[in-house]
Design a protein around this nucleic acid. Structure first.
Length: 812
DNA sequence: CGCGACAGAGTTTTT
DNA sequence: CTCTGTCGCG
């Protein structure tokens, strides 16, 4: 029996409204997963619906796994027949069965972003398109947008073929789809598009699934795009038992084609739809919820609703302003430690959220320093690492011989003496004969003279064929081992040098572990199945909730999660909201950022801390920052402000001066004299700093003293990147230049390539010269050459080397 | 053909 | 700053 007494009246109604279209507007923390899980249980237990007639769609594998687990727990027997799946994996499952109808092979490859780029690069080259004017990335995003909007290549050509850039895009789109098909590959968008095409072209296939999925539930409906809408629409048409759950205030994937109108006009699209609102929040304190409501109230065109809670008032939301990103990160680290002790919390109760992945580095550094165990979600994807991609390319080649991108990736990895010229010959030959690259390799002896390259090709083909035979008999893990050993890949990695090789081999071990756990968790493990699981993982999927570690991730990744103590860092205009959103003429860009902010705020259960820095290094340059407008949208009485930035006053109601546009920071240097107020464009004369715009505050050189900013600036030339002299007579110099390996593991720097940055004078003591990954600790003048001692530190690789660098000084 | 050096460009969020 | 592509040399 399903116990609905633990649910509130609205939740209960949502659970019991099983027939017909239903829109559940579920605010953050209103227990929507709970409702969905109970609804599934109710369908099975009370309505006698067969479990295999139920489909629940989520956006990430993690969400799917979580739901699956909860359904299992509450339903018991039969629960495993419920389809709980992401859009993408559902589509793959369908396509593996039926895609041959569309002229693809059932062992198709799934192309990730890198594969797409590689393919597009080839196409641009072939079509003689200037890669400066049309970057593969922008062409691909144009194509992706078209696919998300359900515009196929022919339609696109009809619509845009007449205009100038349109025709180029159209040609690329055409060619791209042709190549994908030739390679028997689909990109992420294709997974959805091809499924829709399959359904539209083969009504009997559609009917099968319509009948199979009599009850359909879609989570995070506000993030669906047009293809996904179409897919759901098709599937639900027959039985019309479609329940979608979402929150228009949490729509944050517009850049991916998500169309907020799908949720806003659900009632129009599905006649007779019932709407239920869940507005009681069980997650956060009143303080947190109040702040969230205040911020989101600045958006227009929302569904009318207001979250409320019975929870305690709780601590006020805190805003902490630091003078730079290091202090910000340090402040967070210290706060984690003291709060953990004070509240007897676990590390896993803490989350640090940020707008961009690049922000994680500094936080990581400080957490390491303060011995806070953490888990980083996202960033450089495990599956994007070179060694992993190489191994996967072998597996793809073994599974799908038509995948040219995979074969070309590994044809000379490890080195087989097959260079670009030989590869070019094969490409030309195979294209002329309408065969795949791999087939071309098999016929290589017909077009190439005997030699190193030909031998390498022969051996490669032999090995692949051999692996193919064995692939059916041995485990995936063993297959990976065989590839590593027999191709010489492992030896080549080993030859790279200790530290590098160790890290790479560890990663490959990790991949093998994943292969083993895949095999253990599946009834009939296949190479295709493994590759597809690997292709469809999201960053967040790998997060293990049971680990006692703090979590670092982007705001996007945090959607759907909750933590007792949340830090939102980098609350600065230009960072969050992003500069792109600000400069975008369309105000809806800012609204999406605001929704993202709302998502972030509502992740917090007990305490929310917002942090910002008055200056931050971005792309190697120190930028002046202004406090995020979202912070300002929280009324004064709802937020506790701590200015830890060291003497700067800021902001209107936070006290202090106000800039002409929004707000401006002013501070004094150590002699007590105020800095000159700069123009909005940054400094034009002398020493002042001021913010006003992100392009403000010239100078890539951060600081004069040891800590923080605050050093004096004594007259400098105009413009950007001018010299800077700190109080202590020290200079901070930024220099670009590659480090070269010298004998005995000592690294030697090469001559400076950008001497214009070295405008110090003989006899100056110089600190903090950034030199590749190293830091200069001493400098000695030798005529016109400077000899500099450099410490190379690579935190990530636990590597510390000392060496010398010659810095050549040139006249300016 | 392979390697190293160098110049230039790009920097939001992700299934 | 960091990544990528290109170029020239051995």
């Amino acid at each position: 029996m399903i116990d609905l007494n633990t649910l509130n009246p609205m939740q209960r109604e949502a659970v019991a409204s099983t027939e017909g279209p239903l829109l559940i507007l579920a605010g953050a923390g209103s227990g929507k997963t709970r409702v969905l899980v109970h609804r599934i249980a109710y369908l099975i237990g009370e309505m006698n619906v067969a479990p295999w007639n139920i489909l629940a769609i989520t956006f990430t594998n993690k969400a799917a796994a979580e739901m699956r687990e909860r359904v299992d727990r509450i339903v018991g027997q039969g629960a495993e027949s419920v389809w709980v799946s992401t859009f993408h994996s559902m589509c793959v499952r369908i396509l593996r069965r039926y895609i041959d109808n569309l002229g693809y092979g059932n062992s198709f490859s799934i192309y990730d972003t890198d594969d797409q780029k590689a393919l597009m690069r080839q196409i641009l080259k072939r079509l003689n398109i200037d890669p400066k004017k049309f970057r593969e990335k922008s062409v691909l995003s144009e194509i992706s947008a078209a696919k998300n909007a359900m515009i196929d290549e022919e339609q696109y050509m009809d619509d845009n073929g007449g205009s100038f850039p349109g025709k180029i895009f159209a040609n690329c789109y055409m060619e791209y789809q042709k190549e994908l098909k030739k390679n028997n590959a689909l990109d992420f968008d294709d997974l959805l598009v091809k499924t829709v095409q399959l359904f539209e072209k083969y009504p009997q296939v559609l009917e099968y699934y319509q009948d199979r999925f009599r009850y359909i539930m879609v989570d995070e409906y506000q993030d669906t795009n047009t293809v996904q809408f179409r897919l759901i629409d098709l599937l639900a048409k027959r039985h019309r038992n479609l329940c979608v759950v979402g929150d228009d205030d949490q729509s944050i994937y517009g850049f991916r084609g998500a169309d907020i109108r799908n949720i806003l006009s659900f009632e129009k699209a599905f006649d007779g739809a019932k709407v239920i609102k869940l507005e009681q929040n069980y997650r956060s304190t009143k303080s947190i919820l109040d702040a969230a409501n205040e911020v989101i109230a600045n958006n227009r065109g929302r569904k009318d609703k207001k979250l409320w809670t019975d929870n305690d008032q709780g601590d006020k939301v805190t805003f902490e302003l630091y003078s730079n990103a290091y202090e910000e990160a340090e402040g967070i680290a210290k706060d984690v430690i003291s709060r953990k002790a004070a509240c007897q919390a676990d590390y896993s109760d803490f989350a640090v959220l940020y707008r961009t992945n690049a922000q994680s580095r500094i936080v990581e550094e400080k957490f390491l320093q303060y011995n806070i165990p953490y888990r980083l979600v996202g960033g450089v994807n495990f599956y994007q690492r070179k060694e992993i991609k190489d191994v996967l390319a072998y597996l793809k080649t073994i599974a799908n011989g038509l995948d040219d991108i995979a074969v070309q990736r590994i044809i000379n990895v490890p080195k087989r003496g097959i260079g670009a010229a030989s590869v070019g010959k094969i490409i030309e030959f195979s294209a002329a004969n309408g065969m795949s690259f791999y087939r071309g390799l098999q016929s290589a002896q017909n077009i190439m003279s005997a030699g190193k390259a030909l031998n390498g090709m022969k051996k490669f083909v032999e090995q692949i064929e051999d692996f193919r035979i064995r692939a059916n008999e041995i485990s995936i893990r063993d297959l990976i081992e065989a590839v590593l050993d027999e191709t010489g890949l492992r030896d080549e990695i080993r030859a790279e040098g200790e530290v590098e090789a160790e890290a790479r081999l560890e990663n490959i071990d990790e991949l093998e572990n994943k292969a083993v756990s895949y095999a253990n968790g599946t009834d009939h493990p296949t190479l295709d199945g493994f590759l597809e699981e690997v292709a469809l993982v999201a960053d967040i999927d790998s997060m293990d909730d049971s680990e006692n570690r703090a979590v670092l991730m982007t705001l996007h990744s945090a959607k759907g999660l909750e933590f007792p103590y949340v830090y939102m860092s980098g609350m600065e205009d230009g960072l969050f909201p992003s500069g792109m959103a600000i400069s975008d003429g369309d105000p809806s860009a800012i609204e999406e950022e605001r929704r993202l902010c709302y998502v972030g705020i509502t992740r917090a259960e007990k305490k929310l801390t917002l942090t910002a820095a008055t200056q931050r290094m971005i792309h190697g340059q120190t930028m002046g920052e202004t406090v995020s407008r979202f912070v300002e949208e929280i009324p004064e009485n709802m937020i506790e402000v701590k200015d830890l930035s060291g003497g700067m006053s800021y902001g209107s109601r936070f006290g202090g001066g106000y800039g002409s546009e929004r707000r401006r920071y002013d501070w004094e240097d150590s002699d007590g004299l105020p800095w000159e107020t700069p123009s909005a464009r940054g400094r034009s004369t002398g020493s002042g700093n001021g913010f006003g715009s992100r392009s403000g505050f010239g100078g890539g050189f951060g600081f004069g003293g040891g800590t923080g900013f605050g050093g004096a600036g004594s007259g400098s030339s105009s413009g950007f990147g001018s010299s800077y002299r700190g109080t202590a007579g020290l200079k901070s110099v930024s220099a670009a230049g590659a480090a070269k390996k010298g004998p005995g593991g000592i690294q030697k720097g090469s001559a400076m390539t950008k001497p214009d940055h070295l405008d110090y004078e003989a006899g100056d003591r110089v600190t903090h010269i950034k030199f590749g990954a190293g830091t200069v600790t001493a400098i000695k003048d030798e005529g016109r050459d400077y000899e500099v001692t450099v410490e190379f530190d690579r935190v990530g690789q636990k590597k510390m080397l000392a060496g010398f660098a010659k810095l050549k000084r040139t006249e300016q």
